[in-house]
Design a protein around this nucleic acid. Structure first.
Lengths: 125, 125
DNA sequence: TTAATACTTAGAGTTTACTCTAAGTCAAGA
DNA sequence: TCTTGACTTAGAGTAAACTCTAAGTATTAA
């Protein structure tokens, strides 16, 4: 397949129709239409959305995703801007990751503490 | 020192006075008062808040933090519950971490792509 | 004495990212 | 024909986690 209705696509990418329309309205996706103005999503759209979801996953705001998408829909002159945005974002992600690692360590220590207190009867699983 | 006003404590832990009162109202912290009903934060409070912030950092909701805090302010009979909550949370954190790692990889690939496209003039920094 | 800082309750406002409703139209398939 | 699923605009609602204002009081340090 190559072309999907909003209903099919919604299931494929795990976003509600509302959200897909919302993202489109916000300029995050460009979607083709058929002769009746009905949205036709492509595999390319899928790749793009998945890319966006990765950015979202790493904590990028819709606002920045919008910027990135606008540039992406523009020409090659925006490549430098896009790269800069991604690099700055990457820095933040690495910092977040480090903080997360520390917090996870703290969590592990807490769990160990409770397990010791409770006398190892809960150390499985 | 051992005792801090809300103003001092606010700076120490990086939370606004509003937030500190809000957390207290929500049951996340217990704070002593002096004879004039003025909040007196202790080093113990600091450790507790830092603990909470680690949980928050790993994506725990206020709602769950509240549960945990309520139990913490209760007695030892709640230890098992607390341990269960922490363990379940840990599982989620590990999943999130894995997802984050994948998204970071995707981000790195994107950055490499742009750098190649732009002919390595931006590969520093 | 005045400024700074603290306290209270109650509730309004903010931001982000959706999520849904209303009210109407249109086109394809059983 | 009727149901299903698509479309539109415009705006309301939701949830989380704060953030702030109002309006009044109290204490402490300069």
């Amino acid at each position: 397949m190559l072309a999907y209705s909003i209903g099919e696509f919604s299931k494929m990418v795990g976003l509600s129709g509302y959200t897909l329309r919302f993202y489109e309205k916000e300029g995050l996706i460009k979607v083709n239409r058929d002769e009746n103005n009905v949205r036709i999503y492509s595999d390319e759209n899928k790749l793009w959305i998945e890319s966006l979801l990765h950015l979202k996953n790493t904590g990028m705001s819709l606002k920045d995703m919008k910027k990135f998408a606008m540039w992406g829909h523009g020409g090659d002159e925006t490549m430098e801007d896009r790269l800069t945005l991604l690099k700055n974002h990457r820095k933040k992600v690495l910092e977040d990751l480090e903080e997360l690692r520390q917090s996870l360590e703290h969590l592990d220590n807490k769990i160990n503490f409770y397990e010791n207190e409770l006398g190892d009867c809960f150390s499985e699983n």
